[in-house]
Computed example of a mutant assay.
Amino acid sequence: MEVQGCVAIVTGANRGIGEGFVHVLIEQGAAKVYAAARDPASAQHLVDQYPGKVFAVRLDVLKPDQIVEAAAACPDVSVLVNNAGVSTGKCLIGADDMSAMREEMEVNYFGPVAMSRAFAPVLKANGGGAILNVLSVAGIVAVPNMGGYSPSKFAMRAAGSCIRAELAGQGTSVTSLIVGSVDTRMASHVKGSKEAPEDIARAAMKGITRGVDEIDTDRFAIESRAALARDPKGTERGMAKMLHAKELSTGR
Protein backbone atom coordinates (compact mmCIF):
# COMPACT_ATOMS: atom_id res chain seq x y z
CA MET A 1 0.00 0.00 0.00
CA GLU A 2 0.95 3.66 -0.21
CA VAL A 3 1.38 6.20 2.57
CA GLN A 4 -0.05 8.90 0.32
CA GLY A 5 -3.74 9.29 1.18
CA CYS A 6 -3.75 6.76 4.02
CA VAL A 7 -5.47 7.22 7.38
CA ALA A 8 -3.37 6.18 10.37
CA ILE A 9 -3.73 5.78 14.10
CA VAL A 10 -0.58 6.00 16.23
CA THR A 11 -0.57 4.91 19.86
CA GLY A 12 1.62 6.85 22.28
CA ALA A 13 1.60 9.67 19.72
CA ASN A 14 2.15 12.56 22.11
CA ARG A 15 5.96 12.32 22.24
CA GLY A 16 9.05 10.37 21.18
CA ILE A 17 8.80 7.88 18.34
CA GLY A 18 5.01 8.19 18.28
CA GLU A 19 5.21 11.92 17.66
CA GLY A 20 7.86 11.25 15.02
CA PHE A 21 5.40 8.99 13.23
CA VAL A 22 2.75 11.70 13.20
CA HIS A 23 5.15 14.21 11.61
CA VAL A 24 6.40 11.75 8.99
CA LEU A 25 2.96 10.43 8.08
CA ILE A 26 1.78 13.98 7.37
CA GLU A 27 5.07 14.76 5.61
CA GLN A 28 4.56 11.79 3.27
CA GLY A 29 0.97 12.61 2.41
CA ALA A 30 -1.30 10.83 4.88
CA ALA A 31 -4.84 12.17 4.63
CA LYS A 32 -5.45 11.94 8.37
CA VAL A 33 -3.66 10.83 11.51
CA TYR A 34 -5.32 9.93 14.79
CA ALA A 35 -2.84 10.81 17.54
CA ALA A 36 -3.75 8.44 20.35
CA ALA A 37 -2.63 9.15 23.90
CA ARG A 38 -3.79 8.44 27.44
CA ASP A 39 -4.36 12.18 27.83
CA PRO A 40 -5.55 13.70 24.52
CA ALA A 41 -4.47 17.13 25.73
CA SER A 42 -0.84 15.96 25.57
CA ALA A 43 -1.21 15.58 21.78
CA GLN A 44 -2.93 18.93 21.27
CA HIS A 45 0.28 20.52 19.95
CA LEU A 46 0.10 18.13 16.99
CA VAL A 47 -3.54 18.97 16.36
CA ASP A 48 -2.63 22.66 16.39
CA GLN A 49 0.33 22.10 14.07
CA TYR A 50 -1.70 20.13 11.52
CA PRO A 51 -5.27 21.45 11.66
CA GLY A 52 -7.73 19.26 9.80
CA LYS A 53 -5.09 16.53 9.47
CA VAL A 54 -4.34 15.35 13.01
CA PHE A 55 -7.00 14.46 15.58
CA ALA A 56 -6.31 13.59 19.21
CA VAL A 57 -7.88 10.38 20.53
CA ARG A 58 -8.10 9.20 24.12
CA LEU A 59 -6.53 5.77 24.29
CA ASP A 60 -4.84 3.81 27.04
CA VAL A 61 -3.85 0.40 25.65
CA LEU A 62 -4.33 -1.06 29.14
CA LYS A 63 -8.06 -0.28 28.97
CA PRO A 64 -10.02 -2.61 26.66
CA ASP A 65 -13.06 -0.31 26.62
CA GLN A 66 -10.98 2.56 25.26
CA ILE A 67 -9.54 0.32 22.55
CA VAL A 68 -13.07 -0.66 21.48
CA GLU A 69 -14.14 3.00 21.54
CA ALA A 70 -11.14 4.01 19.43
CA ALA A 71 -11.89 1.37 16.79
CA ALA A 72 -15.49 2.60 16.60
CA ALA A 73 -14.46 6.25 16.47
CA CYS A 74 -11.83 5.72 13.76
CA PRO A 75 -13.57 3.60 11.10
CA ASP A 76 -11.45 4.93 8.24
CA VAL A 77 -8.05 3.70 9.51
CA SER A 78 -5.82 1.89 7.02
CA VAL A 79 -2.56 2.01 9.01
CA LEU A 80 -2.20 0.99 12.66
CA VAL A 81 1.05 1.98 14.39
CA ASN A 82 1.43 0.10 17.67
CA ASN A 83 3.98 2.39 19.31
CA ALA A 84 2.92 2.85 22.95
CA GLY A 85 5.38 1.13 25.26
CA VAL A 86 6.94 1.16 28.70
CA SER A 87 10.31 0.19 30.14
CA THR A 88 10.82 0.09 33.90
CA GLY A 89 14.49 -0.93 33.86
CA LYS A 90 13.85 -3.70 36.39
CA CYS A 91 15.38 -7.18 36.33
CA LEU A 92 13.44 -10.43 36.45
CA ILE A 93 14.98 -11.82 39.64
CA GLY A 94 16.33 -8.69 41.32
CA ALA A 95 13.05 -6.77 41.26
CA ASP A 96 11.19 -6.56 44.56
CA ASP A 97 8.08 -8.10 42.97
CA MET A 98 6.65 -8.91 39.54
CA SER A 99 4.52 -5.79 39.15
CA ALA A 100 6.95 -4.02 36.78
CA MET A 101 7.35 -6.98 34.44
CA ARG A 102 3.58 -7.50 34.41
CA GLU A 103 3.09 -3.86 33.41
CA GLU A 104 5.66 -4.19 30.62
CA MET A 105 3.98 -7.31 29.29
CA GLU A 106 0.54 -5.69 29.48
CA VAL A 107 1.60 -2.53 27.65
CA ASN A 108 4.16 -3.94 25.21
CA TYR A 109 2.48 -7.25 24.34
CA PHE A 110 -1.18 -7.46 25.29
CA GLY A 111 -1.78 -3.82 24.31
CA PRO A 112 -0.60 -4.17 20.68
CA VAL A 113 -2.34 -7.53 20.33
CA ALA A 114 -5.60 -6.02 21.60
CA MET A 115 -5.21 -3.09 19.20
CA SER A 116 -4.57 -5.47 16.29
CA ARG A 117 -7.65 -7.51 17.19
CA ALA A 118 -9.85 -4.43 17.44
CA PHE A 119 -8.62 -2.80 14.24
CA ALA A 120 -8.32 -5.92 12.05
CA PRO A 121 -11.96 -5.58 10.86
CA VAL A 122 -11.43 -1.86 10.26
CA LEU A 123 -8.35 -2.52 8.16
CA LYS A 124 -10.19 -5.20 6.21
CA ALA A 125 -13.06 -2.83 5.47
CA ASN A 126 -10.57 -0.28 4.17
CA GLY A 127 -8.76 -2.60 1.78
CA GLY A 128 -6.36 -4.47 4.06
CA GLY A 129 -3.90 -1.80 5.10
CA ALA A 130 -0.94 -2.29 7.38
CA ILE A 131 0.08 -2.82 10.98
CA LEU A 132 3.43 -1.48 12.21
CA ASN A 133 4.68 -2.83 15.53
CA VAL A 134 7.40 -0.72 17.14
CA LEU A 135 9.73 -3.26 18.74
CA SER A 136 13.37 -3.10 19.81
CA VAL A 137 16.82 -4.59 19.54
CA ALA A 138 15.84 -6.02 22.94
CA GLY A 139 13.32 -8.10 21.01
CA ILE A 140 16.03 -9.97 19.08
CA VAL A 141 18.80 -9.94 21.73
CA ALA A 142 17.96 -10.70 25.36
CA VAL A 143 18.91 -7.75 27.57
CA PRO A 144 19.05 -8.82 31.26
CA ASN A 145 18.94 -5.32 32.73
CA MET A 146 15.66 -4.82 30.85
CA GLY A 147 14.29 -8.01 32.34
CA GLY A 148 10.60 -7.41 31.69
CA TYR A 149 10.87 -5.16 28.65
CA SER A 150 13.08 -7.48 26.59
CA PRO A 151 10.85 -10.58 26.91
CA SER A 152 7.77 -8.46 26.13
CA LYS A 153 9.35 -7.36 22.85
CA PHE A 154 10.38 -10.94 22.02
CA ALA A 155 6.77 -11.95 22.61
CA MET A 156 5.38 -9.19 20.41
CA ARG A 157 7.78 -10.05 17.63
CA ALA A 158 6.40 -13.62 17.65
CA ALA A 159 2.85 -12.28 17.87
CA GLY A 160 3.48 -10.16 14.81
CA SER A 161 4.34 -13.27 12.80
CA CYS A 162 1.17 -14.97 14.00
CA ILE A 163 -0.98 -11.94 13.23
CA ARG A 164 0.63 -11.62 9.80
CA ALA A 165 -0.39 -15.18 8.98
CA GLU A 166 -3.92 -14.69 10.26
CA LEU A 167 -4.51 -11.46 8.36
CA ALA A 168 -2.76 -12.36 5.11
CA GLY A 169 -6.06 -13.38 3.58
CA GLN A 170 -7.53 -9.91 4.04
CA GLY A 171 -4.46 -8.22 2.58
CA THR A 172 -3.11 -6.70 5.79
CA SER A 173 0.66 -6.45 6.02
CA VAL A 174 2.35 -6.66 9.44
CA THR A 175 5.80 -5.15 9.87
CA SER A 176 8.01 -5.48 12.95
CA LEU A 177 10.30 -2.50 13.53
CA ILE A 178 13.55 -3.38 15.26
CA VAL A 179 14.56 -0.09 16.84
CA GLY A 180 18.00 0.57 18.30
CA SER A 181 19.08 3.78 20.01
CA VAL A 182 16.68 6.70 19.59
CA ASP A 183 16.67 10.18 21.08
CA THR A 184 13.61 9.80 23.32
CA ARG A 185 12.81 10.21 26.99
CA MET A 186 12.94 6.44 27.45
CA ALA A 187 16.57 6.42 26.25
CA SER A 188 17.65 9.63 27.99
CA HIS A 189 20.02 7.68 30.27
CA VAL A 190 21.93 6.18 27.31
CA LYS A 191 25.06 8.02 26.15
CA GLY A 192 26.38 8.26 22.62
CA SER A 193 24.78 8.92 19.25
CA LYS A 194 21.04 8.41 18.96
CA GLU A 195 18.71 8.60 15.99
CA ALA A 196 15.92 11.14 15.61
CA PRO A 197 12.41 9.67 16.06
CA GLU A 198 11.44 10.98 12.62
CA ASP A 199 14.22 8.93 10.99
CA ILE A 200 12.86 5.79 12.64
CA ALA A 201 9.42 6.61 11.25
CA ARG A 202 10.81 7.21 7.75
CA ALA A 203 12.47 3.80 7.82
CA ALA A 204 9.16 2.33 8.95
CA MET A 205 7.30 3.87 6.02
CA LYS A 206 9.38 1.68 3.73
CA GLY A 207 7.77 -1.27 5.46
CA ILE A 208 4.37 -0.04 4.34
CA THR A 209 5.33 0.68 0.75
CA ARG A 210 7.41 -2.50 0.31
CA GLY A 211 5.39 -4.89 2.44
CA VAL A 212 8.50 -5.89 4.40
CA ASP A 213 7.99 -8.20 7.37
CA GLU A 214 10.80 -6.81 9.54
CA ILE A 215 13.03 -3.73 9.36
CA ASP A 216 16.13 -2.73 11.31
CA THR A 217 15.41 0.98 11.55
CA ASP A 218 18.83 2.41 12.43
CA ARG A 219 22.57 1.81 12.64
CA PHE A 220 22.51 0.39 16.16
CA ALA A 221 19.81 -2.12 15.23
CA ILE A 222 21.71 -3.21 12.11
CA GLU A 223 24.98 -3.62 13.99
CA SER A 224 23.29 -5.51 16.82
CA ARG A 225 21.74 -8.02 14.44
CA ALA A 226 25.09 -8.46 12.68
CA ALA A 227 26.85 -9.07 16.00
CA LEU A 228 24.21 -11.61 16.96
CA ALA A 229 24.68 -13.44 13.66
CA ARG A 230 28.49 -13.48 13.97
CA ASP A 231 28.74 -14.52 17.61
CA PRO A 232 25.46 -15.33 19.42
CA LYS A 233 27.09 -16.39 22.68
CA GLY A 234 29.50 -13.47 22.69
CA THR A 235 26.60 -11.08 22.17
CA GLU A 236 24.75 -12.71 25.05
CA ARG A 237 27.77 -12.26 27.31
CA GLY A 238 28.06 -8.64 26.24
CA MET A 239 24.45 -8.00 27.16
CA ALA A 240 25.01 -9.67 30.54
CA LYS A 241 27.82 -7.22 31.32
CA MET A 242 25.30 -4.39 31.12
CA LEU A 243 23.86 -5.58 34.42
CA HIS A 244 26.91 -4.10 36.15
CA ALA A 245 27.70 -1.18 33.86
CA LYS A 246 27.86 2.24 35.49
CA GLU A 247 26.94 3.91 32.22
CA LEU A 248 25.11 2.70 29.10
CA SER A 249 26.31 3.86 25.70
CA THR A 250 25.60 3.23 22.04
CA GLY A 251 29.36 3.03 21.49
CA ARG A 252 29.59 6.24 19.44
Rank of each mutant, 00 (worst) to 15 (best):
N14G: 05
E19D: 08
I222M: 05
T175R: 11
L228Y: 04
M242R: 09
I67K: 14
Y109H: 13
A130Y: 06
T217L: 11
A72G: 07
D199N: 12
A125G: 14
G160C: 14
G207L: 05
D216T: 04
G169W: 06
R15Y: 02
G139I: 01
P151G: 04
R202E: 02
K63W: 00
A30Q: 01
V107L: 13
G169A: 10
N108K: 11
E104P: 02
K246G: 15
Q170F: 05
M205N: 03
A72N: 11
V134S: 06
A125C: 03
R219P: 00
T235M: 15
K206A: 12
S87I: 10
E247M: 13
A204G: 06
I26G: 01
R219V: 10
L248E: 03
G85R: 12
A168R: 14
G147A: 07
A120V: 03
I131S: 03
V79H: 05
A37C: 13
V24L: 03
T209E: 15
A56Y: 01
E27I: 03
T88A: 12
S99M: 01
R157F: 07
A118L: 12
S78R: 11
S87M: 11
H244M: 12
R230N: 09
E214Q: 14
L123W: 07
T217V: 10
R38Y: 07
T250W: 12
V10I: 00
V174D: 05
P64C: 07
L123S: 05
H244W: 14
M156K: 01
M239C: 11
M146L: 15
Q49L: 15
R58V: 00
A226Q: 12
S78A: 11
G128E: 10
V143N: 10
A118W: 12
A31R: 09
G160R: 07
A37P: 02
V77Y: 08
A158P: 00
Q170R: 04
E198P: 01
R202A: 04
G192W: 09
V174C: 10
Q28R: 15
V143G: 03
E214P: 01
V212P: 00
C91R: 13
T217G: 05
G238S: 13
D97Q: 03
Q28L: 15
A56I: 00
A37Y: 03
R252F: 06
S173D: 01
V57E: 15
V54M: 06
F220K: 08
I208L: 07
T250N: 14
M1C: 02
A245K: 11
R117P: 04
I140A: 03
D96R: 15
A114M: 14
E195I: 01
I9H: 04
